[in-house]
Design a protein around this nucleic acid. Structure first.
Length: 286
DNA sequence: CATATGTCCTGAGAGC
DNA sequence: TGCTCTCAGGACATAT
């Protein structure tokens, strides 16, 4: 489930494409839902073939290829999407491929293949103009989870009646946190996931912001989490390493890594939440 | 307006 | 063994 650390790892993995020129765009043989790739492939091809890739950026959980024309290809991996420079896990779920000619130091050109692969097909790829990008992405997302300050976090959430765990998943409040890292973040911050935002104390927000940064930074260092289903891989088709460092996620009934109390699983907004009742007490004290 | 729920999708695993 | 059922959760649409 690519969240900020996994998407950041994907971006780093394909950054060698910057400066290269797109020479071909193709949709491999699978039948995608029509909304998965927009606009239709021939229009995408017309607009980006011959274009140079000016930058590769991450916006929340999205991978963005910005072209010299300022058009952007916005890829949302959602649950099972992968952005790869390597062989995909299989050929049947390839959604899009870009052939990019990259200049090398000795003046030659090296062709590279960037693939968007997605087993479940919930992911999307959209080519957008600068105006569409600003409207559909820039204005709709909160500050990036790695950039947000404690004051901004408090300002955006302190009035909300939602549980803090649910609010952390709201990309309009803060961009990049998903279900896995929300549990890990709240465990490190010592905050109960069901605590309502408007019941948190002013003193809770700085350690929460620090926990967001600490968990995500460490997860990036380990190149993200590859779960039991093995879906997530980095751009070179290798496992991430952070799954071995999870303190509560997917560890129901196992001992908390800090205090050995049994980890508890609850469901919030139809999603699993894991926490330690000892390290994350219901009271707002601490 | 804020918040809650339903929807999409596929494959793994459980249970009979 | 082989079938059916449930579950996983990103973001968005629709309902409350």
């Amino acid at each position: 489930m690519p969240e900020l650390p996994e998407v950041e790892t994907m971006c780093r993995g394909i950054r060698s494409l910057v400066g290269g020129t797109v020479v071909a765009v193709a949709k491999p043989r699978c039948a995608c839902r029509p909304i998965s790739i927009r606009p239709a492939l021939p229009r995408i091809a017309r607009r980006i073939e011959g274009q140079t890739i000016a930058a590769i950026e991450r916006l929340g959980k999205r991978v963005i290829l910005r072209f010299a024309s300022d058009d952007r290809l916005v890829i949302e991996p959602r649950m099972t999407g992968l952005v790869l420079l390597a062989e995909p896990p299989d050929q049947d779920h390839l959604r899009l491929s870009l052939t990019v000619e990259c200049p090398t130091k000795n003046g030659r050109v090296q062709p590279k293949e960037m693939l968007f692969w997605d087993r479940r097909g919930l992911g999307t790829a959209r080519l957008v103009s600068p105006a569409e990008f600003a409207r559909d992405y820039g204005e709709r997302l909160g500050p990036d989870a790695l950039q947000i300050t404690a004051d901004e976090l408090q300002e955006r959430l302190h009035w909300s009646r939602r549980a803090i765990k649910v609010a952390l998943l709201d990309q309009a409040a803060v961009a990049g946190i998903g279900n896995l890292y929300a549990s890990e973040i709240l465990h490190l911050a010592g905050i109960h996931p069901a605590m309502r935002c408007d019941r948190l104390r002013a003193a809770n927000w700085p350690p929460l912001q620090a926990a967001i940064r600490a968990i995500l930074t460490k997860a990036i260092r380990y190149e993200g989490s590859t779960l039991a289903d093995g879906t997530y891989r980095n751009a070179l088709n290798q496992d991430g390493g952070y799954q071995n460092h999870h303190r509560v996620y997917d560890r129901a009934d196992e001992p908390c890594k800090r205090c050995r109390t049994a980890v508890v699983r609850i469901v919030q907004a139809q999603r699993s939440t894991f926490f330690c009742p000892e390290c994350q007490p219901r009271s707002a004290k601490r």
